[in-house]
Design a protein around this nucleic acid. Structure first.
Ligand code: ZN
Ligand code: ZN
Ligand code: ZN
Ligand code: ZN
Lengths: 129, 129
DNA sequence: AAAATAACGCAACATTGTTGCAAATACAAA
DNA sequence: TTTGTATTTGCAACAATGTTGCGTTATTTT
């Protein structure tokens, strides 16, 4: 298992994501960092944060990849957390919000092996009405 | 309302999507067309097909946009079809399949106005086990 | 302090998607 | 069938996003 290090870039990016009420895209993170590190480094840090289960990836309805922390899961249970909650993608402001309370029920044909689910609702968020 | 025309590109692209059991990406469509038309034309045709409700857009877990026809909806009801069904995204072969039978139930906070939903399950498809 | 390893910056590249504009085409009216 | 015109296309140019290789820097271990 590869050792992982704490760097300024990683610390700042994680702080950003943890403090944001909505999921952030690479571009949004980059402009918020204000030149702290290279574009490529952001990609690599995000990748690392995901494998370390610090953040999770969400894709909005346009296919834009966003990153969010899981506010609800304590650090002890992070390694078992599957991030299988719903997300809301606003058509107006394009913001993506985790809705950790919504757990949809469904059934699949038994020949499909389900590992993860991505349940994204879209419409208008409370701020945009 | 702008008039729309049937062209070779449009006909072929729609035929491709309609005959495919899985959702197709722009790149897949392009290579299947074998130089029939320009890359840009494919983007424009797909856009047209979506507004005409001939096909719908799905985003897989990696954020790749794919296009699929709706086999279940007859041409008469296309204009009212909301494409609110589930999709399965295979981790191995990356194929996206419409699962039109699955309709998840859920509830959202009432200050969110839901227009559409994108429910994508991922795992291993029957072909890949 | 030195060695080992992880992370970084930079450049270069690949892929995906968008826009403007002139030329080609589809289609309906004459 | 020919003509008129709005729609569609190709091409070129660009923007945005994501990836890779490699030499340098920083952190951790010995
Ligand atoms: Zn909004
Ligand atoms: Zn989330
Ligand atoms: Zn598969
Ligand atoms: Zn579908």
């Amino acid at each position: 298992m590869k050792q992982t290090r704490n760097t300024a870039a990683k610390t700042e990016i994680l702080k950003l994501i943890n403090h944001s009420p909505v999921a952030l895209s690479h571009a949004e993170i980059q402009s918020a960092l204000n030149g702290l590190c290279d574009r490529v480094t952001i990609y690599r840090v995000l990748e690392r944060l995901i494998t370390e289960d610090e953040v999770h990836k969400v894709v909005n309805l346009e296919g834009v990849v966003k990153y969010a922390s899981c506010h609800s899961c304590s650090s002890e249970e992070k390694h078992i957390h599957t991030h299988n909650h719903a997300h809301f993608s606003c058509e107006k402001c394009k913001e993506v919000t985790c809705m950790e309370d919504i757990e949809p029920s469904f059934k699949v044909p038994k020949n499909y092996q389900v590992h993860e689910m991505n349940f994204t609702l879209s419409g208008i968020c409370p701020n945009c009405r």
